[in-house]
Simulated scan of single mutants.
Amino acid sequence: MATPGCCRGSLSVAWGGREMQAVILAAGKGSRLHPLTLNRSKAMIPILGKPIVERVLETLVQNGIDEVVMVVSQHDGEIQQHFQHYARPNVSIRFVVQPERLGMANALSLAAPHIRDTFILSACDNLTPPEHVAELLETHRRTGALATLSLMEIDRSLVSRTGVVEWCDGQVRRIVEKPRPEEAPSNISSLPLYVFAPDLLAYLPEVKPSPRGEYELQDAIQMLIERQGRVTGVFTRDRLQLTNAADLLAINRHYLTHGGDSPQLAPQSVGRHTHLITPLRIEEGTVIGPGCVIGPRVYIERNCRIGADVLIKDAVILRDTVIEDGRQIVGEVVS
């Protein structure tokens, strides 16, 4: 991959007289999405024609962020190529390479030399409403917090999959990464979306590798809690997370039915007696044979070949896929 560079654009939005930036962590491999991630990174998995990392970026841009540091894998050339043609010319994107996937604290430490002041940090696979991002930013500004976390109540059986906080009187008193259910301080999850003062960056060099060999961001947040305090949070009921193929199906279904995207039906050709049932998105270069029923709630990425007498419903068909004659696909992701 090329030396870290910067797409052309403007400086970031003023934050109380200062500039504010965003950092997006997009170097993850997406092992639980295999084999969908054999030929592209998790960040570049499509949600109705846009990589999920772009969907995350849009929620930040809608809240006035226009300077972004994006941490990417050295094996992901596609992501830089994609954002060279990003449709918002006033958004500046600087790419920083993470040579090894060593956790969020390591990724943030690589972005740290480019961070000047208060910043918002997001993973590339976590989508929350733009209104929630706005509330995070406003709460951070109003309270004078050093860190403002995105929080969500979850079923206690799920606490071992996420960071969990102890919440008391509007403050985060403790944060634990993936605790056992019996050891969890609560059922309140810390989502991978934060607003940080630059104070947090000073603790990153002190983070030690976890038993799984990663440098956990939660350890740096806990140091901030213990030494300086002023860590708060904002709750959300709504979020979409991309972890596996079922999530990909659900997120695309959500955007088909609630996302407000302009519909696209752009197949190269459609055979006789084929029925297309909305909501539906079909990208350019796709050829559909005769006698098919496509939809509802179907997303077909570009350059696919659909045979004759095929039924596709509640499904995602990824780019360059060939579907043989007579196949029935319901509730699946096919690549």
Rank of each mutant, 00 (worst) to 15 (best):
M1A: 12
M1E: 09
T3G: 00
C6K: 00
V13A: 09
G16C: 04
G17N: 07
A22F: 01
S31N: 14
R32F: 03
L33N: 02
N39Q: 12
R40P: 01
S41M: 04
A43C: 11
L48D: 00
P51D: 15
I52N: 02
E54W: 00
R55L: 12
L60A: 09
L60M: 05
Q62T: 01
G64E: 11
V68G: 15
M70H: 02
V71M: 08
V72N: 08
Q80G: 02
Q81A: 13
N90E: 11
V91I: 14
V91D: 05
F95H: 06
L102I: 12
M104Q: 13
A105H: 06
S109E: 15
L110V: 08
D117M: 10
T118I: 04
F119V: 08
I120L: 13
S122V: 08
C124P: 01
T128C: 10
V133P: 15
E135T: 12
L136F: 03
E138K: 15
T139K: 15
R141H: 09
R142H: 13
G144M: 05
A145V: 06
T148V: 04
T148E: 09
T148I: 03
L151D: 10
S160T: 11
G163A: 14
Q171V: 11
E177V: 04
K178L: 01
R180A: 13
A184G: 08
N187W: 04
S189C: 03
L191Q: 06
L193R: 05
L193D: 02
L193W: 05
V195P: 05
V195M: 10
A197L: 04
S210H: 09
R212A: 08
Y215P: 00
E216G: 02
Q218L: 09
L224Y: 07
L224E: 13
E226P: 06
Q228T: 03
G229W: 12
T232K: 09
T232D: 15
F235A: 08
R239K: 02
D247Q: 03
R253S: 07
H254N: 04
L256Y: 01
L256A: 02
T257C: 05
T257Q: 12
G259P: 03
G260Q: 07
D261L: 06
S262R: 11
P267R: 14
R272Q: 15
H275C: 09
I282E: 02
E284S: 13
E284L: 10
G285M: 14
P290G: 05
G291C: 12
I294G: 04
P296E: 14
R297D: 13
A308T: 12
D309Q: 15
V322W: 12
D325S: 13
G326C: 15
